[in-house]
Amino acid sequence: MTYRAKFEQELEDLKLELIKMGDIVISNINDGLKSFLSMDITLAEMTIKKDKMVNDYEKTIEKKCLQIILKEQPVAKDLRLITSVLKMITDLERIGDHAADISKMTIFMQKSLKPYVIPHMKLMTEASQKMIKKALDSFVKQDLGLANAVINDDDEVDAYFEEIKGIVAEAIRHNEIDADYALYMMMVAKYLERISDHAVNIGEWVIFSVLGEHNHNVIF
């Protein structure tokens, strides 16, 4: 006989909700960058609107976590799991904000600016999206190997940022890029870099939920 079937179901539901929240965030990053590269203001506005869904998910999941703590008095791995969800949704929400920030760059930009297209922006976006996917996957599977991989993947995204910075600087020197566009582009790259940092945070909370250690400090 299975005990605490309702509690088990609530924990499974939490994981599911987190994945759904993650999916929206990942798609918003995608649309944000797409709107920037194609100067698509309509898409940018839609993406900013969609960020509200991310914020709603954060509130819903937060409420569920607190209710489970209140009603079920979880201990050991259950308490770690719920605590890590509470921390991870904050990071996901921030990532959502940055996806909206990227879309705002599209809106701030003047349509008259000449785009400066390099493949690195898209590659950097893909790399950070992969990190989020991997981080959430490592949570659902409670897989330490995957969680650690997310932390290591951050170097790749950081390297893209440095490369883009170099390319933009070079383009400015040769007058190949609009000064305004260069600034917006660097802002977008910085947001992407921050997004990957938040993915690292999620990976670190996965490690906590498995081991009770956060950044090698024993918490619980």
Partner: peptide, 19 residues
Amino acid sequence: IFSHPKHQKTEDYITGRFG
């Protein structure tokens, strides 16, 4: 015991999976 029990049975009991 309440954070990292060594035995699965202990974990199952304190988390209310049986008993």
